[in-house]
Every structure is written in C-alpha cells, then in structure tokens.
Design a binder for these strands. Structure first.
Length: 808
DNA sequence: CTCCCTCGAGTTCT
DNA sequence: CTCGAGGGAG
C-alpha cells in the first residue's frame, strides 16, 4: 500500500470505530459484534504503531491510555466552574407538604426577580460523580480538567480520553472553533459492582461507593489503569461556544450536545416543566425511580430554561441564581453513643462531640459526630449509651439527627417502693463542663451566644497550638510541612510558645522533637533511612519557615487569628490602611469606617491591639517577619474620614447616622468637638436628649481622649494620602449602577468589571440610590422601575462613551 | 426593625 | 458543608 492508501485506511478505521463506539457506549445500541470492533481496533493500533505519523489526537486508540504522568498539571478555568446553591432544608422522605411549600417559595422568588410568570424550568438528575470540563478546539478534544476549587482544576486529559462515552472528535462538517462542555464523570452501579468483585478477587482494596470508585479511577496518574475501569459521562452544560450559535435555552443546549455526540441523560429524566407544581412532580417521580436508575444520584437540579432569563438572574458569589440543587433526604443509620467529649477550638470554643460506635452510612464509616453546642445536645437530649440516628449532612459531615428514646438504657428509679413501676435513665442529661478540659480555665458563655468558650486564651495549650496551626495555614503564612501533630509536640515540649518562636527553630530542635515524638508514640526505632527522611523533612520545614518571612500584609493579618477577622476582612484592612503600623494605632472608629466592618469587628480589632500580650507577641514576630507589600493608605480612605462618617462610627449613644450628619455641619471638625464643654454643646441644634447623651459621653475622660486621638490620626492620614486621584473616574466614582438585559457586546461580568475598575459600584436592584441603569435587549422590570424613579438610563454605547471621557 | 447576603469558624474522613 | 453572627440595604 502507498502512504496515501495507508492514511486513507487509518482514517476509515477511525471513523468506523468512532461510530461503533458511539453506538455502543452512548446509544447503548451496538450494530456490530464486539469481536468485529476488537478486530478493527487492533488493525488501527498496529497501523499507528508501524506508522507513527498516522496518529491523531482523536484516534480511538488513545482510549487505552498512555504513559503514567509524574503529576497532574493545573488548569485555570476561563469560565469558573461554580457549585450549585441549595435552598431546601433536609427533611424526611414523605414530607410532601413541606417540600411543596419550599418549592413554591423558590418559584415565587424567581418570578419576583424576573417579573414573569409562569417560569419554565429545565430539570435533570443531580449525578453523584465528578464534575469535569471538556474543551474542544475545531471539534477535537484538546483538554479535560476537574473542577478543583472552581477556579483551577487538574489536567486529566489523558484519563478522560479513555472514557469511551466522551467523543474525541465532534462529527460535524463545521464544528465550533471553540466549545467547552461541562458534565459529570461517574461509574454505573453495575460497573462499580463488577470492579469491586474484581478488586476483591485480586486482593486489592474495594471502593466504598461508586463515587469514590469514579474519583479513584479518574485520578490515576497512569491512564492505562483508568482505561480498564468503566467510567461513564453525562454532559449537562455548555460553558463556552465560539464559531457556532449558542442555543437560547438549556433544553436547547442539551439537545444540541446530544446531536454533537455527547451522552446526555434520557429525555424523560430531563423534562422542561412549569412552575412549582412541575418541579414538585418531577422531584417525586425521580425519587421514586432513584433505585432503578443505573447510576447514583443525590438529588435533582432545576435550571431556569431561558438563557436570557439566566443572564438576568446572574450570580451570587460562587453560585448561579438561576440553577439550584434539590437534594434527596440523606441516608440514615442507627448507632450507639459511647461517650460525649469536648473539643477546644482555636478561639476557645468548646464543642461537644459524640464518640460513636463505628457505623457505615452514606458511603463511609462514621465514628465521630459534632453536637455543635450545649443547646443542641440538650435539644436533642443526646446522652451516653443512647442509640441515635446519624446521617451525613449534605452527605459530608456526620450529624446526629435524633435519639431513639425507646432504646435508652434505664434502671429502676432510686427510692422507688415495691409498688412504683418508675424507671429512670442510667445517664443524666448532658452538661457542658464548667472548666476547660484542656487547661482547666473557666468556661464562659456570653448571654445570647450559642457557643461557650474557654477563658484561658493563649495560656490554654489547645488554643495556643491551634493559633500556631492557623498561623501556618495555607491561606495565611503558608508554612508547608508543619502539621497538627508536630505543632502539638513543639508546644508540648516547650520549643514553641508563640508564633515568633517558629523562626528561632534550628535543625537540631526539629530532629530532637521528632525523635522524642516518635518515642512517645512508640514508633519503630531509627534506621539510617528514617534518619535521612527526618532530616530531609526538617530541612524542608526550615526552608518553608524562612520562605514565609515576607508575607503579604493581608495574609499576616489573617494569620494573627484576631477574632472576627478572616481572609476577607484582613484584605479590606490591608487594602485601605496599607501598613501594620497604622492598623496597630487605629481606634475602633477608624476600622468601623471601612466597608463591611461594623462595631463588633472594629472593637475586636481595637481590643486585640490594645492587649499588651498581643503587642509583645507581634513585636517579637516582627523581628523575623516583615510584610512585603505595605503602602500608604488608600486614596479612597479620604472619603471615609469625613467628619460625619467618623462621628457615626464612634458608637456614641443616641447619635444616629442622621444626627451625626447634622452635628458635622455645625462643628468645624472632630478637634473642635473634643474641646467643647457641656454649655457649648447646648447651643447645638439637636434634640436635647442627643446633646445630653453626647455631653455624658464626652464627660468620660477616656472618650474625650479617644476623640482627640482620632482627630489627630485623621489629620495625619489625610496629609499622607497620595494626592493624585488617578484611579477615580469623575463620572463613575462613588456612583451606583444596575445592569439589566443583554448588552450587545459586553457580558454582564465584563460590564461589571469595567464599572468597578472606574470606581463605580454595581448593585442588583434599582432603588432611589441608583445613579444609572445600563439596559440591554430584553430588559425587564428593572428598566421599568428605573423609568418610574426617573433614574438615568444608559445603553452599552453610552456607557462606553462615559468610560472614554477620562480626565480630559 | 427586618430581611438577605457574606464572612468566619468549626468539622469529618480519605 | 453548615451554622451563626455581623453588616448593610430597604
């Protein structure tokens, strides 16, 4: 045969095999016997082996897998893979009425948002597998990635190619130049059972459930192993299309995907329904059919069918508002409470935990279940020795649902006479200990709080260890290799008392600590190899500690573990105030002037830095660590230092937002107020009770002094602010925009990003505070509301024009 | 004052 | 993932 003939033969074989494969794996209707398929497959394999130039990226021979990878590479999703919200509460299987009520509520919310009725919903089962993104360029599968954290996932292209149900090439004369398909990889129940039987016969470990089997199979670095596992796939969404028309509805997308050769769930399992009644009927019918389905599902999904309506609803943080998961009631099991013990958290929170007789539920063996807090234990009246119903809440976290009272161990009532039949429980109701189980300090429960806390602070070993653990965490100082176990030991043996001590650790310290820890735990005596492993570990750890010495300011702030200050608040502080020095000096009112920081968080910050121990620990830490990105306060801070704003943040009794504004107009500044006497205050045009409260407040020397300090700090900050206002766009700065309808070229997110970059804010709904409404095609109620309120209305062109008018 | 949303904190198992 | 609490909008 000539080269051309060979190429033609290879091409023909590929086409034939792809078609047979599709018939077999997707349509479940093979037209040729397996032997025939195998014969053609081997012919193509041989041909490609002998003539490597004939290999293609879409050849069915790729389905057998290739060389093992050293590791999966990371892939950034260009369209984030979001998770679905769940607006429904857990309930019993048979609680139709409550379920229906919740569906009505959900449907009503959507109708209100869209100002339309009835709403058409596309439905589908919620597969219990792994979400995957598939990228096709010019019709050829070029990349497959796991969901990961939604932003970045792992590159599993080789493994995905071995899944026969996934087309390697779209059979179209003119495929889209770009297509990103989302779907779920899973293992059918029958394939799972077969796999486990094989594993058992081979003496390999079996998988707890099909989901774990699918995950374990897909995450093989050796794709040849993946190829031997029978994985299936169902497509359920399109994330990107270029070079083809994007269907206008979800149902349309699904039909198109099916035409393109993707397996999608059978049509009768994904009806388009109307309103709450349609959703309810769908839910109940799928629940009925659940056991007979060939794959595991953990609920159903409802999606607003119209893509225009989807765009209008948009997103909240990382979940679309137009799609929602409705989970089935979780599987439940009975087990025995062997003990109730308490854990002490980083902030001293005392959490009761039920130690359970191990029980297999929802795919794993559960031995512990949190009881959250004292009230929760008492409400459920869980006691030692009780038989309880447990389940995995959201199919993840074990939870005690209720006690089976009939099975509570009893004994005859004490003091009962011969005639009384009285019995009493062997164990009394649960009581939270009055002293910390770790350090013995008093346990305090603030009025109105659900959580009791150990008052020991950092003198409590549990809190100290966990403070250090928090400090070292990935999103904080990111010290790799410093796990819980070693931190506990470092604290226990006295190598580390506070976070600064980490930076003083030597190689010897670490090796000594490890040796002692191993001895304490009866780990086998040292070998030469173990010694090498240990010193490698210690070196890596020292390197990781050294690498953490120039953190971003926000990370350092988060790492300090200040109550109520998490990742997001830490970032706000770093962005607005810029330097640790300023943050350490700032009074509560300054914190409270920042966005999303209110009185409680502000006070918590001020308290932290006012505490001498914390200041000392911070000073010690700063011998070794320096934030790498300190800068002057943000230019935006200037507006927040407005006299009226600061007055309102001082938490002066009776001085409301409105009164603060009135007061601000009558004084020249905070300095003046700080000097005013009661008789001068009486001249202010404010209600008498406000003036009195203000005067009383100023009578406290500490308050007056705090006000003076705030005034001085304000002046100082204002003079240090960058003078240029280059970031602020005059037409956008401080203005609120609302987007509605579909813009001709900009996506919703792109428009939002542009407005925010120019200093504007984008809100979800129109109110009298809205400055501009940007309306596109099919704009709905928001446009009407804007017209009603007389809010300025822009189209995309005028928005762009406004953006163009920069500082000229 | 009352929603509604976001953020913080705690948690399990592999 | 879920709960509770804090913050802000209406």
């Amino acid at each position: 045969m000539t080269t051309n003939d060979l190429a033609a033969r290879a091409h023909a074989l590929r086409q034939q095999l792809t078609r047979y494969g599709h018939e077999y794996y997707v349509l479940d209707a093979p037209s040729v016997p397996d032997a025939e398929y195998d014969r053609l497959f081997r012919e193509l394999q041989t041909l490609e082996q002998q003539h490597p130039q004939l290999k293609t990226a879409d050849s069915p021979t790729l389905r057998v897998g290739g060389m093992p990878l050293p590791e999966f590479s990371q892939i950034t999703h260009s369209v984030p893979m979001l998770s679905l919200g769940n607006a429904f509460s857990d309930m019993q299987q048979d609680d139709f009425a409550r379920r229906h009520a919740e569906l009505l509520q959900f449907d009503e919310r959507i109708r209100r948002e869209l100002a339309e009725s009835p709403i058409r919903y596309a439905t589908e089962p919620k597969f219990d597998g792994l979400a995957i993104s598939l990228l096709y360029r010019d019709g050829v599968l070029v990349q497959a990635a796991t969901r990961g954290d939604g932003i970045t996932g792992e590159n599993v292209t080789e493994n995905i190619r071995t899944i026969h149900a996934i087309p390697l090439k779209l059979e179209l004369a003119h495929p889209p130049t770009l297509l990103e398909v989302r779907g779920e990889v899973l293992m059918l129940k029958r394939d799972f059972e077969r796999l486990n039987a094989e594993q058992l016969a081979r003496g390999d470990k079996t998988f707890a459930n099909p989901r774990n089997a699918a995950a374990g199979s897909l995450r093989q670095l050796d794709s040849r192993i993946t190829a031997q596992r029978r994985l299936s796939f169902f497509a359920y969404a399109i994330a990107q299309v270029e070079g083809a028309d994007w269907p206008l509805s979800h149902a349309g997308e699904m039909d198109w995907l099916q035409q393109l050769g993707f397996p999608v769930v059978a049509q009768d399992l994904r009806p388009v329904v109307e309103g709450a009644a349609g959703l309810a009927a769908y839910y109940e019918s799928v629940l009925q059919r659940r056991a007979t389905l060939p794959f595991e599902i953990d609920g159903v999904v409802y999606k607003v069918d119209s893509r225009a309506q989807q765009e209008e609803l948009g997103f909240v943080s990382r979940a679309p508002r137009w799609a929602i998961a409705h989970k089935f009631p979780a599987e439940e099991a009975l087990t025995l409470v062997e003990a109730i013990e308490e854990q002490v958290g980083r902030t001293g929170a005392i959490t009761p935990v039920a130690r359970l007789q191990p029980v297999f539920v929802g795919g794993v063996t559960v031995t512990n279940a949190t009881l959250h807090n004292e009230d929760e234990v008492l409400r459920k009246d869980v006691r030692v020795g009780d038989t309880v119903i447990v389940r995995r809440a959201g199919d993840v976290i074990p939870e005690v649902v209720s006690v089976v009272l009939e099975r509570r161990p009893m004994r005859p009532a004490a003091g009962g006479d011969l005639f009384s039949q009285g019995e009493e429980a062997q164990y009394p109701p649960y009581r939270l200990p009055s002293h910390c189980p770790v350090c013995g300090s008093h346990v305090v429960r603030e009025a109105g709080e659900a959580i009791a806390r150990c008052s020991g602070g950092l003198s409590c070993k549990a809190q100290r260890s966990q403070a250090i653990q928090h400090f070292a965490g990935r999103r904080m100082m990111d010290i790799d290799g410093l796990g819980e176990r070693y931190i506990d030991k470092l604290v226990e043996y006295g190598y580390v008392h506070g976070v600064a001590d980490l930076y003083r650790l030597t190689l010897d310290d670490l090796l000594q600590m490890k040796r002692r820890a191993d001895e304490d735990e009866g780990v086998t005596p040292e070998t030469v190899k173990a010694g090498k492993v240990a010193s490698k570990w210690a070196e890596n750890l020292l390197q990781a500690i050294a690498a953490s010495r120039q953190p971003a300011l926000a990370r350092l702030l988060f790492a300090l573990g200040i109550r109520h200050v998490g990742e997001s608040t830490a970032k706000t502080l770093a962005d607005w105030l810029g330097s640790l020095a300023l943050i350490r000096r700032a009074p509560a009112a300054l914190f409270a002037a920042l966005p999303d920081i209110g009185g409680v968080v502000a006070q918590s910050l001020a308290d932290f830095f006012a505490e001498a121990n914390n200041e000392a620990a911070l000073d010690a830490l700063l011998h070794y660590v320096a934030p790498a990105d300190e800068h002057p306060p943000s230019a935006k801070l200037g507006e927040q230092l407005d006299t009226a704003v600061l007055l309102a943040r001082l938490a002066i009794p009776r001085l409301t937002e409105v009164r603060s504004q009135q007061l601000a107009t009558q004084i020249s500044g905070l300095e003046q107020l700080a000097r005013m006497e009661r008789r001068q205050l009486l001249l202010l045009q404010l209600p008498a009770e406000v003036v009195n409260a203000l005067a009383d407040w100023l009578d406290e020397a500490a308050n007056r002094q705090a006000l003076q300090q705030l005034a001085a700090l304000r002046t100082e900050i204002l003079s240090s602010l960058p003078q240029d206002t280059l970031t602020a766009h005059p037409l956008f700065d401080g203005k609120t925009f609302v987007l509605t309808g579909t813009l001709p070229t900009l996506s919703r997110d792109a428009a939002k990003a542009l407005i925010e970059a120019a200093g504007g804010k984008v809100a979800g709904s129109v109110s009298k505070k809205t400055h501009f409404v940007v309306a596109g095609a099919d704009a709905g109620s928001k446009l009407a509301k804007a017209q009603e309120l007389g809010v300025a209305i822009l189209d995309e062109a005028s928005l762009q024009a406004m953006l163009q008018q920069t500082a000229d």
